[in-house]
Every structure is written in C-alpha cells, then in structure tokens.
Design a protein around this nucleic acid. Structure first.
Lengths: 263, 263
DNA sequence: ACAACTCGTTCGTGGGAGGCGAACGTTCTT
DNA sequence: AAGAACGTTCGCCTCCCACGAACGAGTTGT
C-alpha cells in the first residue's frame, strides 16, 4: 500500500484516499472493517464513504463498500493518454504472441514501477497472484531497466524515498549492489530479475527511449523461473530487443515534426 | 462531469475529487488552469495536488498535472472484481468478432451507465469521440435495457437525481415517454437507441440477469446509424440474444452451489 | 416473542486543519 | 536586464472535519 511521504498533506483528502486503498486491499469492505483498518471514528469513515460515493468512486452493495466503475474510466484515460499508447499496446501484443511468457509495458512513477499494459497469465495464476500494487524499482527487471538510464541523483532520490526493502532473499539490499547492477544493465542492454520481487518469478526488461534519450518505460517478459533455461532466456532477450527497436522507431516517427527536421 | 448531490459531503475531499475530474476533462492541466476551473486559491489547489501526488493519483510532468498510473490498477481491480468478469469479457470478445459493430458490457451505478468492458472502434473514432464519462440511463440502449427490469420506484429515484437532459433532438425528455419506452423494451426483450445520446450513433442493448432476476448489466452493440438497415439490425439483435443467453447460462453455472441444489 | 447484540446512520459540539492572501523563487520573454 | 507569468512557501483566521453519543434497523438466541 502506498504510504504518504513525511510532508504536509491534506489530512481529510488523505483519509479518503487511504479508505479507497483499504477497500482495494480488503477487496470490498464493510464500514466496521474500515473503522478497524483506519482507526478513525465510525461516523468519520461513514462521511468519507458518503463523499466518495457521491462522486462515484465508491459503491455500496448490500452494506459492503466497493470501488466504483469510475476508476475504470479514469484508468482507461490514463492508459490512452500517452501518445505512444497504440505503439506500446501493439508491442505488448506482439511479444505476448511470439513468446510463451507474459508480456507487459511498465513505467516509473513517483519512484515506483507500474505496469500500464500487460498480457499477464502467470502473474495472475494462483501460484503467484501478483497484487496490482506498484513495485519497488530495485526488485523488478523493468525498474532496473529504467533506472539504468537515469542519472545518479535521480536514482538516489528514489532510493531515499522508498528505501530498499527485500521481499525475497535474492532482492538487492544495498545501494552499492544496485548501482553495480545498473552498470551491468547498461552494459548488456537489458535487465534481468531472478526471483527478486517474487519467489520463483523471473523476468527480463529493456527500456524504451525517445530519440532524445528520455525513458518512456520498459518492455518486459516474465514467467515462472523453472521454465527458463539458457536457450529460452536468450530467445526472450532477442524478442525484447526486436520489440523495443520497433517501438522506438515507430515512436520516433510519430514525434517527428518540421522543427526536428530543421535541427 | 459528475456533480455531487445536494447532501452533506466532506468539502476537502470533494475539492480534491473535483480537481481530479478537472484534470481528466482538460486532459492534463497546469496549476493556473485548475485555479481557474475550480475557483479556489492558488495555494489551495497546490496543496490538493500535493496530497494527490503523494498518494500517486496525480503526476507532475514538467508543470502539467496528469492523472497517475494508479488509476489503471484501481480500474483493473474494479473490472476483475465481479465474479462474472471472465464471462463478460468473453461475451464482448465474441460479439466484437461476430459483428461489424462495437461491442460492450455496461453496468448501472449511482444512476448512470458505465461501460465496463468494451471493444470500441467507432466510439473512439474522430467522428464520434465518445468521452469516457458515464451516460445518463435514459439516453442509452444499455440504460434502458437495464431500467426495464427495475421496479418503478427505483427508476424514479434515478430520474429524480439526474433528471432527463436531452443531448440530442431524439432524446427522451419526459418520464411518461421513458416509462412507455421501458414497457416496449420489456415486450421486445431488448432496447434500441437511435441517436438519443449522440447524433448519428445507433445501439442495441439487452440486459443480462442472474437466475434470481437481478440485473448484472447490459450487453450492447453499437455503431454509426448510417450502417444500419432492417437486415443488419435484425442480425445484431440475433447476435445479442445468443450472447446474453450464453452469458446467463455460464454465470448461472458459476453461481450454482450445493445449497441451491437443496432448495 | 422478546431481548440482546451488531452494524449502519444521524446529530451536535469543540478544536484543529484547511483555505486564503501575500511574499518569495524560478523560468521565460522582450 | 527588467518584467511577466507561474509555481511554491508561509502564517493567520475561520470554518469544517472528527469525534462520541444516541438512534434505528436487522439478526441471533433462548
């Protein structure tokens, strides 16, 4: 769950947002459950829910509160907002088709990694059940792939904010190790993740960048580690590289404007 | 845009939510634009944005505020929350494949109709450009299909809250006309919409219900009115009926439990 | 059938937090 | 270099949120 940083935030709004996240976490909740989860007074939670409901962010189905369908639309809007969204979707679809693994495209936001488009089979399987919450950058292939192209200061800022929690034994736990890993990523051109976020879950990721070097996000292939040997691993990297290459060329073409020609 | 009803709502939270919706409407906005849109003080808007950003609901890309990727996850959660979501997705995919029209599945929430799953080509075309915001029940095929199975009181409550605005000349504008239309929908088993929400945009919808008669939502086919003649119209209805039938049978099988057998 | 319990809703009050305006910082423009 | 435009920070005053208590509805047990 997302924690607020130490700074000054509007407590009323923050309480409402926390309630939303508790509903998400609990998969729908009764008033009582939310009172327990938040530690607020019954009447307080009630009025938050009332407000959220008035705006359509929450629905009440026989005394259990759920998130409203409005989030679907907001989500769709976010997904289609970026100019490159068609290209990204196509890339993911192509990868999912060519590979036996899961494919997705993830972006970094506020120092966390979030999957924007994805064709996820394994991740949703009972064996792994990846919850939707954003991942820490240092535990994912996508995060490392993206961070490898940031300058050191930007990386440090993220680490300062979120730290280096270790969800598994293989997770990176020191800044030193992370910066070494990022160097390795830059050298080999892609990032790998062998059970660093989720036990037994493997992934490769490669950053997608604009001609100017800004990082859009990262294309990734992932699946159960036991399916991966040297051969399949090489094949996944090969696929990724082709997908990223096409993505970057198409995005570049899309952004080309008269002034670019002049320069 | 969603308006709060007259009741007492938490003003701080409400202001934050309104800011979110303004960002959506404006497709990303600067602080100044939001100050103008909301009428609040610069510093006030700023602190709202700061709070929303702290929780990941808003991102700042070079001084323009956008909605955060977190909405994608919340949206995905909402979409997959309902137990029938797989069945609904399959039904939409099947319809989209069989028909030349757009297919979608919509639900009623807080008196508005919202499309949960959809394969929308025409609706996103420049000619129509359906914005994501929820529709009024009386202007859509899905809304009418759903309302036809509600009791009169429930329908009146919705009308009292939202009224009967007329986005086009063909829109239904009186309660009387709407109730007559709902009666017709019940008789023929499906609802039709000929440019009542959007000029030149046609749709048919049919409610999907549980064995107990609760309405899950409505499956719909839609597209440009100029593509529709008597023959295609009949074909769409035929497809819809088959899809709804399968949906209902599969959903019923899913919910069948030992106790249902006993009763 | 009644009482006891649980859970959701409503109401009135005090104190803290949110909204405002002014001042400051920063980035472009001319 | 001066000015404008915009984002950010600060401190105070007022209002509105958070609380607790009382109420109502629905459920269980004996």
């Amino acid at each position: 769950m997302t924690q607020p940083d130490g700074e000054q935030v509007l407590q009323t709004t923050a309480a409402s947002l926390r309630i939303v996240e508790h509903i998400l976490e609990l998969g729908g909740a009764s008033l009582r459950e939310l009172v327990e989860a938040t530690g607020l007074a019954k009447s307080t939670v009630h009025s938050h829910l009332h407000t959220l409901a008035a705006y359509g962010y929450v629905v009440n189905e026989d005394n259990r509160y759920h998130l409203g369908a409005k989030f679907c639309h907001l989500g769709d809007y976010v997904r289609t907002r970026k100019e490159y969204h068609r290209v990204a979707e196509e890339a993911v679809a192509w990868l999912a088709n060519e590979s036996t693994m899961d494919a997705d495209f993830a972006v970094e936001e506020h120092g966390r990694v979030i999957s924007l488009y994805g064709d996820l089979e394994f991740a949703n399987s009972p064996r792994f059940l990846v919850d939707g919450s954003p991942f820490h950058v240092h535990t994912t292939a996508s995060g490392k792939a993206i961070l490898a192209h940031y300058d050191e200061e930007r990386v440090r800022k993220i680490l300062d904010r979120w730290g280096l929690p270790a969800p598994t034994e293989r997770s990176i736990t020191t800044e030193e190790a992370l910066f070494a890993e990022l160097e390795r990523v830059r050298e080999q051109g892609f990032a790998e993740n062998d059970g660093e976020a989720i036990e037994g879950f493997w992934a490769v990721g490669k950053a997608v960048r604009s001609p100017r070097g800004e990082v859009y996000g990262s294309l990734n292939l992932s699946g159960p580690a036991y399916l991966v040997d040297d051969e399949t691993r090489a094949a996944q990297v090969e696929l990724l590289e082709r997908a990223v290459d096409r993505f970057e060329r198409e995005a570049a073409a899309m952004y080309r404007t008269p002034e670019d020609r002049g320069e």
